[in-house]
Write a protein that binds this DNA or RNA. Structure first.
Lengths: 222, 222
DNA sequence: ATGATTTTTTAGATTTGTCTAAATTTTAAT
DNA sequence: ATTAAAATTTAGACAAATCTAAAAAATCAT
């Protein structure tokens, strides 16, 4: 079965939202997709007709098994292309999201499997997110939000959720990227900002707004 | 400026047709794009409004300078992707056309320039067609149609125009591909079929229908 | 050169995905 | 338990790209 780019974007967005909230609402999805609630309702009906979605009007919705399968394949494509762009074409990891948004809709399954092989079956993309394998399985990484990292606990940045150019620019400026090891030295309860120390560098301040989007993995070494 | 995939396909098709005939007609283009003449007329008006086309009703049409520029960039993308698929992902050269038809509509200019660099600025694609450079210039290859190759003249296959799966399958079966050296041993005027000899292999027969689509370069060595 | 044929265009519909404005349903507050 | 507010859906419209059927223009054949 082949779906339009628009439908694929809906499925992907619902997948992301439901993994945070369980069930998704119309307004949430409209916000995520930068569109109007009425447009979302229209599309929900179509997705339901195609049995990609469990949806009762006014009741919220979540993907069907089939819808989930399709969404995961789109995510697989997105992340493999991002990996390709960074590792092979030497794009900065903050430049690749938009391009991958287009590439993820190329339909050939054979293409994506060959690309996967060519890249050496990578397990995570340049933002630290896991890449599903050909059958749709992917590792759940045990990452924790930077806001929840205990003081003086060394950890490694493993992912950034909000992939806007703006946040990525900010992180780059502060010398933070996937793989950077850091510890939280202080938390200010007034504005929930953090003071973060990077090995062998002066510490930097990070707002709650930014920290919310940073996920880290505990670091064994230290 | 960004154009829809559909418009890009029209521009590309017009480019190809006008390079053979000078001026293009509605029916020709409808045939090429497997659509109806009425649909073509509709689109011609839009392309004219966007100044991509010189078109007067009932009079035929050709690309404007701008339309030509856009078409060449699409062709550049198509051929670079084909090269990538064959050289890096190890697709057969007869499998890549369809996939490249999708990839050619990815919009990022930076992507395509980086891809070009990554591939080592190739001058021609796996079908032997020249790849325009970043500024739109490309080599005119001095190729001749196989039907026009004199008897007993060694030459090398440099291109195949009709890139349907069917013809490529047939060629593969007869051990013919880009780069194959051959000479025409006999021409049968009854059906314009050819008997062709490949170095160190028994000769094969090729119908006019197939030969029409094969272009060759004269071979110095022999 | 004029009537027949072919080509091209127009008119009007259809599909997909979107929108605004209005109506309906749910939820929240008193 | 009502009512006010918020969320969601429906109704109706629009743009892009396509289609069929009919009309108009160009070309061909005698």
């Amino acid at each position: 079965m082949k779906y339009s780019a628009s439908k694929e974007n809906y499925l992907k967005a619902i997948f992301h939202l439901q993994s945070q909230e369980g069930v998704v609402t119309t307004n949430e999805l409209a916000e995520e997709l930068q569109t109007r609630a009425a447009s979302v309702t229209d599309m929900l009906k179509k997705l339901k007709d195609q049995k990609l979605l469990n949806y009762e009007r006014y009741r919220g919705f979540k993907l069907s098994a089939e819808g989930r399968k399709v969404a995961i394949q789109i995510i697989r494509k997105h992340r493999l292309w991002e990996y390709f762009l960074v590792e092979k074409l030497h794009f900065g990891w903050d430049e690749v999201h938009e391009i991958a948004e287009e590439l993820e809709h190329i339909s050939s399954k054979k293409l994506i499997d060959k690309l996967d092989e060519y890249l050496g079956f990578p397990k995570s993309d340049p933002h630290g997110d896991p890449i599903p394998d050909s059958s749709g399985k992917f590792e759940r990484v045990d990452q924790v939000n930077l806001l929840d990292l205990p003081l003086n606990q060394w950890a490694e940045i493993s992912g950034v959720t909000n992939q806007s150019t703006e946040i990525l620019e900010l992180l780059r400026h502060k010398n933070l990227s996937i793989g950077t090891r850091l510890e939280v030295k202080k938390k200010f309860s007034f504005d929930n900002s953090l003071e973060v120390r990077i090995k062998s560098q002066p510490s930097v301040t990070i707002s709650e707004e930014v920290a919310k989007n940073i996920f880290v993995k505990y670091d064994q070494q230290n």
